[in-house]
Simulated scan of single mutants.
Amino acid sequence: MKRIFALWRVVAGQDLRLLWFAIRHEQRPVWLLPGLAVLGLFAVEPLNFTLPVLGAVDELMIVPLVLHSMAKMLPAHVLDGFAHAYAGRRRA
């Protein structure tokens, strides 16, 4: 359970900001918007409401792992732009 919370801490902290920056970046990868749209639909699919246990597994494990892997697959120019934009805003 500690690993799941640590994964969510990484995703909620850095990865979501990075992906939000990448969505608004003018040279974002072509796969980013469709990939995030599919992941969003996967996170709120009707199966989550029918079988709540499987829905919890989705939201706690699969969604953050896919978000983290998408953030790792971003090209270098997007990552550099993120580093320059958020260089002075890092939290302690």
Results as ranks from 00 to 15, higher is better:
Pro64Phe: 02
Leu67Val: 03
Ile62Tyr: 13
Trp31His: 05
Met1Val: 08
Asp80Ala: 09
Leu47Arg: 06
Met1Leu: 09
Ala92Phe: 09
Phe82Leu: 07
Trp31Glu: 06
Val53Glu: 10
Glu26His: 13
Arg89Asp: 10
Glu59Thr: 10
Leu51Cys: 00
Pro46Cys: 01
Gly35Met: 04
Glu26Tyr: 11
Leu60Lys: 08
Leu74Thr: 05
Gln27Leu: 06
Ala71Arg: 11
Phe82Trp: 13
Leu67Gln: 07
Trp31Ala: 02
Asp80Leu: 13
Val57Asn: 02
Val44Lys: 02
Ala43Ser: 09
Ala6Thr: 08
Pro29Asn: 05
Val44Leu: 06
Val78Gly: 00
Glu59Cys: 04
Asp58Asn: 15
His68Asn: 13
Gly55Pro: 03
Asp15Gly: 00
Leu67Phe: 09
Leu19Thr: 08
Ala56Trp: 13
Leu32Pro: 05
His84Gly: 02
Phe82Tyr: 15
Gly81Ile: 09
Leu65Tyr: 09
Ser69Gln: 13
Asp58Arg: 15
Leu47Tyr: 05
Pro75Val: 06
Gln27Tyr: 06
Arg89Asn: 07
Val57Ile: 15
Gly81Asn: 05
Thr50Asn: 08
Ile4Lys: 11
Asp80Glu: 15
Arg17Ile: 05
Asp58Met: 10
Gly40Trp: 07
His68Tyr: 14
Ala12Pro: 00
Val30Gly: 05
Gln14Arg: 15
Val63Pro: 02
Leu51Tyr: 14
Arg28Thr: 02
Ala85Arg: 14
Phe49Ser: 12
Gly81Tyr: 08
His77Glu: 11
Leu41Gln: 14
Gln27Cys: 03
Arg17Phe: 10
Trp20Cys: 05
Leu74Cys: 04
Leu65His: 06
Thr50Ser: 10
Leu19Ile: 07
Leu65Ala: 08
Met73Ser: 14
Leu36Asp: 01
Leu41Asn: 14
Ala43Lys: 03
Pro46Tyr: 04
Arg90Thr: 14
Val10Gly: 00
Thr50Trp: 14
Leu16Asp: 09
Val63Asn: 04
Leu47Pro: 01
Asp58Pro: 00
Met70Glu: 01
Trp8Gly: 03
Leu16Tyr: 12
Leu36Cys: 01
Arg91Phe: 08
Met61His: 11
Thr50Val: 15
Thr50Ala: 12
Pro46Lys: 04
Ala22Arg: 08
Leu65Trp: 07
Val66Arg: 02
Gly13Cys: 01
Glu26Ala: 03
Pro29Glu: 07
Leu60Tyr: 13
Leu51Gly: 00
